[in-house]
């Protein structure tokens, strides 16, 4: 899932300085799961803003909503009747949700309340680890389920480099060497020969926003476009 972190109140306050009526919208999927932008966090953020603005003698009127997913237009439609009553929207969704919100309600300024951090996994309550950089060229099949793009400081597809240091990366002893781990796990699974396969370098330069249409829905997209 996508992992996000609540922005400091100060930053949110400075974005909302000139606005008196703001609708805070949570997102009930990834950011709710990572305890950053679900219904509870909407309530907490609104209470913080209310306290801060009242103390600043610049009171604010706050609305609260939480939709299933801000990255789906259909769920944003639910806000249709509410948005008009506000000067601004504070979105607690990830960057994708904030942008869809801004696109759906183009006349209203939309501000992000969280920093979208990474694609990660949930180790325990409130504890997340980055696992994927969405490179678009998944090599996990040949790297024993360990992502070298995320875990290797150089993002090497063919490693390790000369900086591997007793199982750790040369950048520091807190960071395990991804390729050392890959080697160990491939060996454990008896498929070490796969480490010799050379994977062509990824084309990182000149990247433009990617669009994905699942094969089964390509015709549907053509139909919608025509």
């Amino acid at each position: 899932m996508i992992v996000a972190e609540r922005k400091p109140l100060e930053e949110i306050e400075s974005m909302l300085k000139g606005y008196r009526r703001v609708l805070t919208v949570g997102c009930g999927t990834c950011v709710a799961v990572c305890l950053a932008g679900g219904e509870k966090e909407v309530g907490i953020l609104n209470a913080e803003l209310q306290i801060a603005r009242k103390l600043d003698e610049n009171p604010i009127e706050l609305g609260a909503a939480c939709v299933e997913r801000q990255c789906d237009m259909e769920f944003l439609d639910e806000l249709q009747g509410m948005v008009d009553q506000y000067d601004a929207i504070l979105s607690m969704a990830c960057g994708a949700g904030v942008q869809f919100m801004a696109e759906r309600f183009e006349d209203v300024p939309v501000f992000p309340a969280v920093d979208t951090t990474f694609i990660g996994a949930n180790r325990d309550v409130g504890w997340y680890e980055e696992k994927c950089r969405a490179c678009g060229t998944c090599v996990l099949g040949m790297t024993a389920g360990i992502c070298p793009v995320t875990m290797c400081a150089k993002g090497l597809f063919n490693g390790p480099c000369g900086g591997t240091n007793n199982g750790y990366c040369e950048i520091g002893n807190d960071q395990p060497c991804a390729w050392y781990r890959i080697y160990e796990r491939l060996a454990r699974q008896g498929r070490l020969e796969q480490i010799m396969e050379i994977h062509p370098a990824n084309e990182w330069r000149n990247q433009t926003p990617r669009t994905l249409v699942q094969a089964a829905y390509r015709k549907r997209k053509e139909l919608a476009a025509s």
Partner: peptide, 8 residues
């Protein structure tokens, strides 16, 4: 932490 951030 939150109320201190909000000025209380």
């Amino acid at each position: 932490r939150l109320i201190a951030g909000a000025g209380l």
